[in-house]
């Protein structure tokens, strides 16, 4: 039960950071499969059924641009961060760092209290 709760909370925690990771990884143009591999190599496994709908949502929001192009004799859809996406990514990173700082302060405060 505890491990199940942990797993649910872990997934919830990661879900929010996946958007950030995806936007950050797409500062460089990538197609879906290589994007997923990049994220997995950096410790952020994401299922195909989550990644592709997410890419479409981000594109619909104007944060990504995409184009079909041939590579290795196969047609692939390449995604890249748009100008608006870059701006949003910077804002999100600021927010992310701010959350990290707050959390670190809270944890430090707590450890002092415990001591």
């Amino acid at each position: 039960m505890t491990s199940e709760s942990f797993e649910n909370l872990r997934l919830e925690l990661r879900r929010g950071s996946l958007v950030l990771a995806t936007l950050a990884a797409l500062r460089q143009e990538r197609y879906g499969y290589t994007l997923r591999k990049t994220l997995a190599e950096n410790g952020l496994d994401i299922e195909e059924s989550t990644l592709y709908p997410l890419l479409r949502r981000l594109e619909a929001q104007g944060l990504l641009t995409s184009q079909w192009r041939e590579e290795d004799k196969r047609n692939k859809r390449f995604y890249q961060l748009s100008a608006e996406g870059t701006e949003i990514l910077n804002q999100l990173l600021t927010e992310w760092r701010s959350i990290g700082t707050s959390l670190a302060a809270i944890l430090q405060e707590d450890s002092h209290g415990n001591l």
Binding site: E48, R56, R74, K76, R77
Partner: peptide, 17 residues
């Protein structure tokens, strides 16, 4: 409206895998 586009992307992903 999106059927063909999504299926093509899915096919490309499966093929890459």
């Amino acid at each position: 409206a999106q059927r063909q586009d999504i299926a093509a992307e899915l096919a490309a992903d499966i093929q890459s895998q």
